[in-house]
Design a protein around this nucleic acid. Sequence first.
DNA 1: TTCCTGGCGC
DNA 2: GCGCCTGGAA
Length: 219
Amino acid sequence: MKTSSLEQVFERLLDHFGPLHWWPADTPFEVVIGAILTQNTAWTNVEKAIVNLRLHDGLTPDALRAAPRKRLEDWIRPAGFFRQKAERLQLFTEHLFARHGGDLRRMLAGPLAEVREELLALKGIGPETADSILLYAGGRPSFVVDAYTRRLFGRLQLLDADAPYEHIRAFFMDRLPADSDLFNEYHALIVEHCKRLCRKQRPLCPECCLLDLCPFAKG
DNA sequence: TTCCTGGCGC
DNA sequence: GCGCCTGGAA
């Protein structure tokens, strides 16, 4: 029985890094906050903002709804884009109360495609953020595509790195079982591998566990 | 395409 | 100093 390329890459990364058990958050709502704050932002800066929010008990839907906009901006400033992100956090929270009584689990419990469309309709929630929320806050099997995914699988020549988001997401979801634990671990491993080894500049190909599978490393 | 933003590594 | 960071909107 021949293992598919995607499963082979997953097994190699899992063997190398071990299970990573994302997302680093205490509650599903905190995942939503992190997913918005990390847009085009290094996670180290997001952590500073989360610490500020925790310091002010600002990690719940009730707290975000009640917080004055300016105060919220101050708390999340270290994450950058603080005006946009403060608006996005509060728009999400307002929607949560308006449509789901402030209950995130309820919001994320419906049919996957419908919940995804609902998320995408919100200002500031694009496909990557929507899939991150579905997967890591909702435990739903929606594969997350990010810049790292494009870079790694583009270099492996398993897909076109410039293809549209939905195309790449479908590539993975058509070839893997709809298993949220698998998607969770796979995306985490991709991020870890790309941060440490498959970097944009000066990738560490000699140390890579995918070396023999990678045209980029050879060429 | 450009704008939005701060922190960090090099 | 410059480029990058788990993007998205206009």
